[in-house]
Design a protein around this nucleic acid. Structure first.
Lengths: 262, 262
DNA sequence: CTTATTAGTGTTAATTCTACGCAAAGTTAG
DNA sequence: CTAACTTTGCGTAGAATTAACACTAATAAG
């Protein structure tokens, strides 16, 4: 399966013709021959798709792009693209995210690889799916001309390929992960208030919490630092600003004590 | 990226020679040409690897095979192989498992896709990794001549490629999943006793439980049915045989009430 | 002035967890 | 034969956690 070397018959033909043999080099992936690559066995193509989650007071939403080319032209789709041979899937997903949002440090996580045979009508394509959690306020429009738009989860348009399935799986994965890792914070600005945090959790998990119990639970976890913003807060009417404390989280994670669940 | 059609120069050369052009057909993946496939862009190869977990009273172990070919010839490795274009990754993993163990109904689950650039010295290969939970007593030797052997987790040999990393990730994934899904039962014979079940959990999670609390927890979950095996059990000295109740599990899963944790 | 919002503390009952004790009745080792 | 051990099953007392709601203070918004 590796670089097979060029097929003897083909080599012969090429040698007899005046095509430059110097382009025929044993590359890491297959044999490069005349602007193309030759393999003894058929190879599927590999893409990464990145479900980008954002959050604001209206709830949880995902960033979709309108496809400019066939197939599914004009259809909404999860951002993604073909993996290059000089990058890992993580790097590929991060590159896609950067192109689409301008962000290069967001939280991303691989959650599943989709391999159904007919999922792309053109050829056999498998996709390594990621989800990203971004702070919507930091996102700027994508570089490319592709139309991009946020859709509230629950008001999604029809999606290209098997992207509806991928998106549903991403949402499910997010729900499951949020119990045991403080990834919810990735969706908020660096500084946030307690009601904002609670709304976020309620939006993702689809449940309601008692405000006071939520407050106590969060404070007892010790993950929140009040921000000293100089504002005199003699009135509780002004929400307190908090910041996530990463050190305490790392410490807590080792002891397997972390859990946010109601 | 799709089927690119055959390169005009190459087509010309082939036409001038006496090589049969009929083999050049537009296939789903790339263009088939003279026992090979030609693509405009380089493609990585795709494999699945399947970490097969087994369990007996000596603890948790994994099935490894000794590689008969280069690279890493003579080295132990996780069973796996190249994905064909007419099968999904799930089917590929299940096929590998069947070839290695003779089992065709075991529990398998995809947990991560490994894509590091240098992970295979031959060419770019990504692997979709699965773990399987099998009942060791049902496993028969693999069909192929390849040497296969069970290794207790914790006494693993040096492994080929990045298989040590894959195996560690599989074990971690198993540990996390076992809290919320009754996949532990997949490792046991259909009928088992309470001490066997407890030993299994202790072996996987690496902790000790109080026998009585474990008993009560399991019974309260309602997932175990005592087996009516006709043996008169007027003595507690004879362990009771249990069987896993799948219906109750499905019912419980919907209500999100399932958890095994101590 | 009224209503709504936010922070924070209290309280209380219900539930769950943890760590044991104990009895019955055999099996196994010596 | 005896002593030690195994397994089932119930009990239980204290600690910890959860869930549900009361209440105050302060003030912004209308």
């Amino acid at each position: 399966m590796g670089p097979e070397g060029i097929h003897p018959d083909l080599r012969d033909v090429l040698r007899k013709s005046n095509i430059d043999l110097s382009v025929i080099t044993g590359k890491q992936a297959g044999v490069e021959v005349m602007n193309g690559y030759w393999y003894k066995y058929p190879h599927a193509a590999i893409t990464t798709d990145c479900v980008i989650f954002g959050y604001d007071k209206s709830g949880l939403s995902v960033l979709l792009i309108k496809r400019g080319i066939q197939p599914f032209e004009g259809c909404w789709a999860i951002p993604g693209g073909f993996m290059r041979l000089d990058e890992s899937a993580d790097e590929c997903a991060r590159r896609e995210l950067q192109e689409e949002t301008g962000l290069d440090t967001a939280f991303i996580e691989q959650f599943h690889t989709f391999t159904d045979i007919g999922r792309d009508p053109r050829e056999r394509v498998i996709t390594i799916a990621y989800f990203a959690l971004v702070n919507k306020t930091e996102v700027r429009a994508g570089d490319d001309a592709a139309e991009a738009q946020w859709f509230p989860i629950g008001q999604l348009p029809n999606l290209a390929f098997d992207h509806a399935e991928i998106l549903a799986a991403a949402h499910q994965s997010l729900k499951e992960k949020i119990h045991f890792e403080p990834i919810g914070f990735e969706l908020l600005p660096e500084v946030f208030t307690m009601p904002e945090l609670q709304n976020l959790y309620e939006a993702i998990l689809g449940v309601k919490f008692d405000r006071r119990n939520f407050y106590r639970k969060m404070m007892n976890l010790g993950l929140l630092d009040a921000v000293d913003d100089g504002i005199v807060r003699n009135s509780p009417r002004i929400p307190i600003n908090y910041r996530f404390n990463k050190e305490k989280y790392d410490e807590m994670k080792e002891k397997h004590k972390f859990r946010i669940e109601f």
